[in-house]
Nucleic acid binder design. Structure first.
Length: 494
DNA sequence: GCGGATCAC
DNA sequence: CATGGTGATCCGC
């Protein structure tokens, strides 16, 4: 008799049961096999790092210690200068709605509050976007395929996504945020980062924790949603703290240097934003489990890790967002915080998963669809593309990409397709049947605004791609069947 | 510049 | 039987 999942909390026995169900369901699937291959590549990477580590000398370490000492001094100087007009540290808050999509449905239809429920993933190949907290006790998580979730919990209710509803709810929540910081930033519908310093200056009777309690209470009163929050000296710490007492809780991280170091020192490395499953595994292989381990082993890590990662680790182990006190950017680099270079998207993409197929005609039709979608997005964003990347995924889940830089003025569906179709043909030719494919997409990057030099809306200079480029977005004269024949003639090894 | 990988949401 | 889509960044050629 299996353990009753209704009693599942965070207990070890229940967790083991959940893991066993997931393992039994996943075992043998193509997805699982691809995961194993990725795991093997990570193991190779760790082995190479260990071989490198074995060659590290005392003088390498001594040199690293010097470099680290200088970097640490620079970081501390920069952090101490990041204070408000009165010389006090800023009070940053990160606020995060709990199980946002699922909770919005619960507010509208309270019958979902007491039963396991998840949102998204109603299609055949669906994965869940959010699960309510009842469902989470069964081990159900976001990004879990629906069919595995049903093995964990057969009575699970799965609702369709309703973004219109989520946008309405998010807009209400944002009116609350704006009362506490009119300049708050949101990276997604369900979270926001606020600078509470001005608000607190106007309300000296409130502690930061009291103000945030009141903000979360206002969110609940005005939307029925619960939120969790973190309060700290910078946004990174606030974000980490917002996760600590979820759901419907908050945490204040000490603002003094030693308090910050104690907080990050006790933190498992996986909690730092930017350290995912793979980096966690790599660090684990070197006995680096916590922020304190990072700090203690910094000289050694410095000698074996790549520049971006080691600098990131140095910063976060001091409780400081990465990139702090870096040397000034080279002249000409467009790194204007708050300016439009910082907010401009660097790429736009469209991709789609479908029932695995080896049919070139189908893949061509799908690629046309993705190009049409991407063309619409480019036009709406008022940009042209300099680089196009074709992406395709095998039935085995292995992913391939091919990219090519263009003259910088590509946007219509037809232009996009003429650039990426050869990439599709080449990849398919390299992988002869019976290779089957399950996803295909196209990404535009190196975006150039319509009003950039030499560029005005409707008049594009220097466009010469294929034979038909009158600026018409609808030019799908080339028939799939004809392409298919052409490919067949060209296909095949010598 | 290109292709593979990693990460967040 | 069966595992998403979008955007960003980094690393090693």
């Amino acid at each position: 008799m299996l353990i009753n999942p209704l009693k599942a909390g965070t207990g070890g026995a229940d967790r083991a049961h959940i893991e066993a169900v997931i393992y039994e369901a996943s075992k043998g699937t193509r997805f699982f096999e691809e995961q194993k291959r990725r795991h093997a590549r990570t193991a190779d990477r760790i082995a190479r790092l260990k071989a490198h580590a074995a060659r590290v000398t005392r003088s390498d370490l001594a040199e690293a210690e010097q470099t680290i000492a200088h970097r640490r001094a620079a970081i501390e100087a920069a952090v101490l200068s990041d204070v408000d007009a009165d010389g006090r540290p800023r009070v940053m808050v990160h606020c995060d709605l709990d199980a946002f999509y699922a909770s919005v449905h619960e507010v509208d239809e309270p019958q979902w509050r007491t039963v396991p429920m998840a949102v998204g993933g109603t299609g055949g190949d669906g994965v869940l976007t959010t699960a309510n907290y009842v469902a989470r006790r069964f081990g159900i998580r976001s990004a879990m395929p629906t069919w595995i979730a049903r093995k964990l919990c057969p009575q699970l209710a799965v609702l369709d996504l309703d973004f219109a509803k989520y946008r309405v709810a998010a807009a209400k929540v944002r009116t609350v945020f704006s009362r506490y910081d009119p300049r708050f930033r949101s990276a997604s519908l369900d979270e926001a980062s606020l600078d509470l310093t001005p608000y607190l200056a106007e309300h000296p009777e409130l502690t930061p924790a009291q103000a945030v309690e009141a903000m979360r209470a206002a969110i609940h009163a005005e939307t029925g949603l619960t939120a969790s929050a973190g309060i700290a000296a910078n946004t990174m710490l606030a974000k980490i703290a917002s996760d600590a007492n979820k759901p419907n809780g908050q945490l204040l991280v000490p603002f003094d240097r030693l308090g910050i170091l104690a907080f990050v020192g006790a933190l498992p490395v996986r909690k730092f934003p930017g350290i995912g499953a793979v980096t966690d595994h790599v660090l684990d292989a070197f006995g680096v489990l916590t922020g304190a381990d990072i700090a203690a082993q910094m000289p050694f890590l410095w000698t074996i890790l790549t520049p971006a990662l080691r600098d990131y680790l140095l910063c976060v182990s001091m409780g400081v967002p990465s990139g702090a006190a870096l040397p000034p950017a080279p002249p000409g680099a467009s790194s204007t915080p708050g300016g439009d270079a910082a907010t401009r998207r660097s790429g736009i993409s469209s991709e789609r998963t479908f029932k695995s197929t080896a049919s070139l005609a189908f893949l061509q039709a799908m690629l046309r669809d993705q190009c049409a979608t991407l063309a619409d997005d480019l036009r709406r964003s008022r940009v042209f593309a300099r680089t196009l990347t074709f992406k395709i995924k095998k039935e085995s889940f292995a992913v391939l990409t091919r990219s090519r830089s263009t003259n910088g003025y590509v946007r219509t569906a037809g232009e996009l397709y003429r650039h990426v179709e050869p990439m599709l043909l080449a990849v398919v030719r390299e992988h002869r049947p019976p290779t089957q494919w399950r996803l295909l997409g196209v990404r535009a990057s190196g975006l150039v605004g319509e009003n950039a030099d030499g560029m005005t809306a409707g008049v594009r200079v220097g466009v010469r791609v294929g034979g038909n480029d009158g600026g018409n977005d609808r030019d799908d004269a080339t028939r799939d069947g004809r392409r298919s024949d052409a490919v067949r003639r060209r296909g095949g090894h010598p």
